[in-house]
Computed example of a mutant assay.
Amino acid sequence: MISQIHIHEQPGSIQPAFLSRCLVWANWAMIINLSLTVLCLVISYGYAEFFSLYSQIAAHLLTIVFAGVFKLAYVLRCFALYNLGSREF
């Protein structure tokens, strides 16, 4: 009788399919948050005279939030690429 050899994943290893989904999610999150950050900067500085003071305050605060989420998405992207075997970020 021929025994089959099963290759088991190491404990704590992450599935490549999950990493691929994380990579796609992170890329989209970066695109969306970059766009929203630029939009907030345009509202805050470019066309401030067309927006109320409350809108400008919100845009200033959201600039920081969207930039922070962009950075988190970039870290997730680097994590996914690293675990998928890429060494270029």
Rank of each mutant, 00 (worst) to 15 (best):
F50H: 12
F79R: 03
L19E: 03
M1L: 15
V69P: 00
E9Q: 12
I31T: 10
A80H: 02
L19W: 03
Y45N: 07
L36T: 01
L61Q: 13
Y47V: 08
E49K: 08
E49S: 11
R87G: 01
L76E: 05
L81T: 07
I14D: 03
H8A: 14
L76G: 06
K71L: 13
L19Q: 06
F70G: 06
C40D: 12
S3D: 12
Y74M: 09
V75L: 08
V24K: 14
G12N: 09
S52Y: 04
A58T: 14
Y74E: 11
V24M: 11
Q4H: 12
I64S: 08
L61S: 14
A67D: 02
Q4F: 12
I31V: 10
P11W: 15
F50Y: 13
Q10C: 12
N83G: 02
N33P: 06
A80M: 01
Q10H: 12
L84W: 05
C40I: 00
A73Q: 00
L36W: 00
C22G: 05
F50M: 11
V69S: 03
L81K: 11
E9G: 11
A80T: 04
P16G: 09
H8F: 13
G12Y: 08
F66C: 11
I32G: 04
A80C: 04
E9D: 09
S3F: 12
R77G: 02
W28M: 06
F89Q: 03
F50W: 11
M1A: 15
L34Y: 01
I43K: 12
S20T: 08
S20W: 06
Q15T: 07
V42G: 02
V24Q: 14
S52N: 08
A48M: 10
Y74L: 11
V75K: 08
L81V: 01
I14K: 09
V24T: 13
F50S: 14
T37G: 03
L84M: 12
I32V: 14
L39F: 11
W25E: 08
I31G: 01
E9P: 06
I31E: 11
R87C: 04
F50V: 13
L41V: 00
C78T: 05
A58K: 15
T63F: 09
L53N: 12
G12S: 07
A29P: 05
G46W: 05
F18N: 12
S52M: 03
S3L: 14
R87H: 04
H8C: 09
S35N: 06
R87D: 01
F89H: 07
G46Q: 08
I32L: 15
L72P: 00
C22V: 10
A17P: 04
V65Q: 09
T37A: 05
F50L: 13
N27E: 10
Y82D: 09
L39E: 09
A67F: 10
Q10A: 15
P11Q: 13
V38M: 08
A17L: 12
S20Y: 02
A67V: 04
L19I: 03
E88F: 04
L61R: 13
Q15E: 13
Y47P: 00
A80R: 01
A67G: 05
A26L: 04
H6A: 15
I7E: 07
L19P: 05
